[in-house]
Design a protein around this nucleic acid. Structure first.
Length: 949
RNA sequence: GCCCCUGUGGCGGAAUUGGUAGACGCGCUGGAUUCAAAAUCCAGUUCCUUCGGGAGUGGGGGUUCGAUUCCCCCCGGGGGUACCA
């Protein structure tokens, strides 16, 4: 029998499906293990070889765990709502449901090709009404709860209503958008609408008017993490700040728990650091400054209350509520001009020109509560509306930005921290001795901060407080292809939750997907859907992309339940995700939202664990080689001119455009010698007919493709880079092609062999031959000249040693998630067995079981050929036996003063003294000691012997 | 700027708690087989060398009998984040 991958693959694919080999039951007799991949968004481009990297790793791990007696949950689904499908619909008119469905079918076929052991019966799609019924339900739970800071958990909003009814707002310590002060009588006198407005400030899912990231091109708002460098992450369109009424999720209520919960999980330090950074906890004081001739006070947050004697002016964000009130008649025009200027600037401009100092004086003064001096109140765009209180006390002597501002506008600077004891310390470092500060004089900064806060509390002008960078998550999108809100509004505009019985609220069909006028969702045009029979109006916005992905891992536990999002029994059994693998692009967004939802559900007693993902591994990206040709921007006689890379570098004054070239045309691609030869140039101009007749120039001459002569050795060097694998760079490698050519097992093992999972690396098809050879050699242990050659002979000691050391190495490395070294170990083992001409059943049987997680098709085939009936994937993973690894003697390197001078076999049962004596007696060693005194002999068992002279 | 990660042959990458640096694979060189090529098999492959050895894990210093591994400084590459008060 020849090793025919296609035949083997189709045979066992069918077998696995018919026998439900990968079906998982909620079997409580076995220990559970939950292995999860981040589910993909099914894009129109399909999978490239980079996508399955993590999937292969989890597949190996899941199979390994299953063979070790665990009941393994390893599901897959689709994050199927989202912008790209909708953009595609706007451009082509194809309904998002249709394109999404087609894309999913394509993904499924590609995934099946690689031989994954997913239990597809548990698959979920976030756009499925049966699924988003529960997304909507969880949203309503958030809507119906508030966060009690005293009990440190979410509680029903009804509790809050009871407190308000009995005592008013006094003593309530709840996360909110705005502090309220009212007594019970006030509350009881409020109209339903007024009550609703108050409660809205406490709900975990709430509405507020706020400045949001508005993207005109996409016609929607975006969450903070959907904006990168001032442009939208999807599409790269400009983003501006715009005031809109929006739904938000009060994730900030959970800031502290999201931070402390990181100690409970096994994530990489880098990832934890990113999350901590995003939460951005800072401790300090909150205090009020009185305003001259006004009853209002300005609230500020500072981490440096010790520098308050140096606070010589204040700055408010241009959007601050008090700005118009504080602006004097005299300054009015200037302030208005400045605010107009700020509003005219896009996010991107603001970010690009952070070093430019701008601001304007309001004309009003505040009183520094410690020095009792008048200090001017300014506005400036360097103070952000949504961080802290949107106002600062400026200490120009001890803050870089305040200093630049004061210097530009000629404001007073008072030194308050003496840093002379700390050479090299910057203004940002919290070190030095306090000066010019009355009672704090002589204190170290750390001590002074405490003293200042104490004084602030005593003076009753503020308190110790903690601030977070984390913002509440914007939850409204003015789009069609998302979950509709299960919310309807009455005539007063009060938001009313729908009943569970009425869920899911299905997304109505539509044929025009362009945004409606006024920044509204296209759903707003569907008046029959928007207006209910009872006279309510539905919310026309839809939920954002992260809604469905924030809880999908729970749904896999009980994917078909239509009474609950998942049953208590299944949640109690599966608990949480033991191993989660995915890319870093979700490091803050998805992982932060999921943890938030999970903690909320935990508070409700609906999930049994505090954290959803116990262990998390970030797989690296598989990149592609990108090859460019230099195209001279200036045409010559209407002819396009391409220039060799070396020529372009020598003439940097010319203007060039970089034209991506299909990597298949390029010789030595990815190397400094990458180039197009005459043949490549021909392929290029045949492909890009718009460049027909182009001229090619290199250091030796000029070439036009009319004069094609493939025998010429004309070369034009290309510029090669490593970057994204993408359609626009013509460097996409499709896993289907790899599987067709080399087989799924080979593709899987090669992806693992490429290097550590966490690392990014460029794809290089050239290396795949090594793995392909290995698999054929492995096959060769079973078949020679079409004949089955496995025999029943007893194994030799060497063979057992080769087998058991491989079992040991592979099982240890799988646990460490180090799969590249596993593949190497298999190669070493097979080379050893081949050199021993070993085709013994006792050796090969466990080897097949050992290799099965990596090469499932091949091993299933061989396993059955070895006479087994059931799947190899349900067999016991082989265990190693130390007995076979023991040795009589070990070769030791012997060094003199750390330099290796000899090597010697020493019996394993030799004592330290015996080993040393053997080493010292060696001729080679004697030569190097050469009369010198032996001061010390260092003997490291199983390692080395070093003689110090 | 700050935070995190990273730097090993021509290339991808191994190397246990500090203990023979370069496993395994690609590529390359030579040989076998072949009419020839592919495929396959065998041998070699860090660099220098006067063939005794010597140098070597981005650079410099330190700890140690011994450092790719630990510590300090510097340089390069990647990622995150940024008027965050």
């Amino acid at each position: 029998m020849d090793y025919n991958t296609a035949e083997i693959e189709s045979k066992w694919k069918k077998y696995w499906e018919e026998n439900d080999t990968y079906k998982v039951t909620n079997d409580t007799s076995k220990p559970k293990f939950y292995v999860l991949d981040m589910f993909p968004y099914p894009s129109g481009a399909g999978l490239h070889v980079g996508h399955p990297l993590g999937y292969i790793a989890t597949d190996i791990f899941a199979r390994y765990k299953r063979q070790n007696g665990f009941n393994v949950l390893h599901p897959m689904g689709y994050d199927a709502f989202g912008l790209p499908a909708e953009q595609y619909a706007i451009e082509t008119g194809v309904h998002p449901a249709k394109s999404t469905h087609d894309n999913i079918a394509r993904y499924r076929a590609q995934l099946d090709n690689i031989g994954f052991n997913y239990d597809w019966s548990r698959s979920v799609k976030t756009c499925d009404p049966g699924y988003y019924k529960w997304t909507q339900w969880i949203f309503l739970q958030l809507f119906d709860h508030f966060y009690n800071n005293d009990s440190e958990q979410a509680e029903p909003i009804e509790n809050l209503v009871q407190i308000f009814t009995a005592h008013g707002s006094k003593g309530v310590n709840a996360a909110n958008s705005q502090e309220y002060a009212f007594c019970a009588e006030d509350w009881n006198g409020y109209s339903p609408k007024e009550k609703n407005d108050v409660l809205m400030n406490y709900r975990l899912a709430y509405q507020k008017v706020g400045y949001v990231n508005w993207c005109e091109a996409l016609g929607t708002v975006l969450a903070n993490d959907e904006v990168k460098d001032g442009v939208s992450e999807r599409g790269g369109h400009p983003v501006e700040k715009k005031a809109m009424k929006q739904w938000s999720l009060r994730i900030t209520a959970y800031a502290e728990r999201l931070l402390s919960g990181l100690d409970l999980v096994e994530w990489s330090d880098a990832l934890k650091a990113m999350q901590r950074n995003w939460i951005g906890k800072s401790e300090g004081a909150q205090l009020f400054f009185e305003i001259e001739n006004s009853a209002e006070k300005i609230e500020v947050f500072t981490t440096r209350p010790d520098t308050i004697f140096g606070a010589t002016y204040m700055v408010l964000a241009p959007e601050h509520d008090l700005v118009s009130e504080l602006t004097t008649e005299e300054q009015k025009e200037k302030i208005e001009t400045y605010i107009n200027y700020v509003n005219s600037r896009s996010e991107r401009e603001r970010m690009a020109e952070v070093k430019e100092v701008t601001g304007e004086f309001t004309g009003s003064y505040a009183i520094n509560p410690f020095t009792n001096t008048r200090i001017p109140i300014w506005i400036g765009e360097y103070v952000l509306k949504d961080y802290g209180t949107g106002a600062i006390m400026a200490v120009p002597s001890d803050d870089d930005r305040d200093k630049a501002f004061a210097e530009k506008f000629g404001l007073e600077i008072i030194d308050v921290v003496d840093k002379s004891d700390y050479p090299g310390a910057t203004l940002k470092d919290k070190v030095g001795k306090i000066i010019n500060s009355d009672f704090m004089n002589g204190m170290e900064v750390k001590e002074a901060i405490q003293a200042a806060i104490q004084k602030i509390v005593v003076k009753e002008i503020g308190k110790r407080t903690v601030n977070y960078k984390l913002r509440d998550a914007n939850y409204s999108r003015q789009r069609y292809w998302g979950e509709p809100f299960p919310i309807k509004y009455d005539k007063d505009g009060v938001a009313v939750a729908m009943e569970l019985n009425d869920l899911p609220l299905e997304l109505p069909d539509l044929d025009d997907f362009a945004p409606a006028s006024g920044g509204k969702s296209p759903l707003a045009r569907n008046t029959t859907w928007i207006n209910t029979e009872e006279g309510y109006t539905r919310e026309s916005d839809t939920m954002p992309g992260f809604a469905g992905s924030s809880w999908y891992f729970l749904r896999y536990m009980d994917a078909h339940n239509d009474k609950e999002f998942a049953s208590k029994e299944s949640l109690d059994y599966w608990q949480d995700v033991d191993l989660y693998v995915g890319g870093t692009e979700h490091a803050v967004g998805h992982l932060m939202y999921s943890r938030f939802w999970h903690k909320f559900l935990f508070d409700k007693g609906l999930v049994p664990t505090r954290e959803p993902f116990k262990k998390l591994i970030n797989q690296g990206m598989i990149q592609g080689v990108i090859e460019f040709l230099y195209l001279q921007k200036e045409k010559e006689n209407d002819q396009n001119v391409f220039v060799s890379a070396d020529v372009a570098k020598n003439n940097p004054d010319n203007d060039y455009a970089l034209i991506p070239v299909h990597v298949d045309f390029v010789s030595n691609y990815g190397s400094p010698e990458s180039h197009l030869d005459a043949d490549g140039i021909q392929k290029f101009v045949d492909w890009r007919t718009d460049y027909a007749g182009a001229k090619f120039i290199n250091s030796t001459g000029t070439y036009t493709h009319e004069s094609t002569d493939s025998s010429t050795d004309f070369k034009i060097l290309t510029k090669s880079e490593v970057g994204k694998m993408s359609k626009r760079y013509f460097n996409v490698v499709n896993p289907d092609d790899m599987v067709a050519q080399y087989g799924a097992d080979c593709f899987r093992m090669y992806e693992m062999f490429l290097g550590p999972i966490e690392q990014s690396k460029p794809w290089d098809t050239n290396g795949i031959d090594g793995v392909s050879k290995f698999l054929r050699k492995f096959w060769g242990l079973f078949y020679a000249d079409q004949q089955w050659i496995v025999n029943e002979d007893q194994a030799s000691a060497e063979e057992m040693k080769a087998l058991h050391s491989t079992i040991k190495k592979v099982s240890e490395d799988i646990e460490k998630f180090s799969f590249n070294t596993c593949v190497s170990a298999f190669m070493v083992c097979v080379n050893e067995l081949r050199s021993q001409k070993c085709s013994k059943k006792v050796v090969l049987t466990p080897l097949v079981q050992l290799l099965a997680p990596f090469a499932p098709f091949l091993c299933e085939e061989l396993w059955h050929e070895l006479g087994n009936d059931s799947s190899v994937h349900h067999s016991q993973f082989p265990q190693y036996n130390e007995e076979y690894l023991k040795e009589d003697s070990i070769e030791y390197p012997v060094s003199v003063n750390g330099k290796k001078r000899a090597s010697v076999m020493i019996p394993t049962d030799a004592t330290k003294e015996e080993a040393e004596a053997i080493a010292l007696a060696l001729e080679n060693v004697k030569k190097w000691i050469d009369g010198k005194e032996v001061r010390k002999v260092i003997f490291v068992p199983r390692r080395m012997i070093n003689i110090v002279v």
